[in-house]
Simulated assay, not measured.
Amino acid sequence: MADELTDFATWLRETAAAAGRDPERRGATAELARISGVDAGQLSRFYNGQAAPSYKSMLKLAPYLGVTADEMARRAGGGEDGLPAGGTASEITPGQALLALGITRPEDQAVVLAVVERLRTYASSSPDA
């Protein structure tokens, strides 16, 4: 896992630099955090290989890095389809399931994820839950 995080961090820094958001440039991380809505401290942990982003964070960051969330998921250790390597259905997130279903546009993914979250909230507040 540590090697995957290190490889992902290297790729993320190179991708950010290629998109004009070089994390070595003063203020670049704070700027990316501001425009993407991802916490600057968390973004720094991604750059340093201390954590991998959630799929929600990938959806937020990808448009500003010139990549897709699907590519980020693969680079973060997912299989060819962006799902966790060797994962089972119970181990995947709704975002990863969207990729497996072929829902790849960030706008479409955000809508479906919002609906899933609303259904979870509804289900947890239901008297039968």
Rank of each mutant, 00 (worst) to 15 (best):
D70R: 06
E80I: 11
D70W: 01
G79E: 04
D81A: 10
G79V: 05
E91W: 11
L65H: 04
E91T: 13
V67L: 03
L101P: 14
R75N: 08
L61K: 00
L83M: 13
A85V: 12
A73W: 00
G102F: 10
E91Q: 15
A76I: 08
L101K: 12
Q96K: 10
L83F: 07
R105V: 06
L98Y: 10
A62D: 04
P94R: 06
T68L: 06
S90N: 11
G102K: 14
A73E: 12
L61G: 02
G102T: 03
P106H: 06
L101Q: 13
Q96S: 15
A73I: 00
A73N: 04
P94A: 15
R105L: 12
A76D: 07
M72I: 03
Q96F: 14
I103H: 08
G79D: 02
Y64A: 05
T68Q: 03
A76Y: 04
A100H: 13
G86M: 13
A100M: 13
I92R: 15
G79A: 07
S90H: 13
I92K: 02
R74K: 13
L99E: 09
E107R: 03
L98T: 02
R74M: 03
T104K: 07
M72L: 08
A76R: 01
E80N: 05
E80R: 15
Q96T: 10
G87Q: 14
Q96W: 14
L99S: 01
A97R: 13
G66M: 05
M72Q: 01
T88N: 09
A85W: 09
D81C: 08
D70I: 02
G95P: 05
G79F: 00
E71L: 04
A85R: 15
R74V: 10
L99A: 09
G95H: 08
T93K: 11
L98M: 10
L83Q: 13
P106C: 10
A62K: 01
D70S: 04
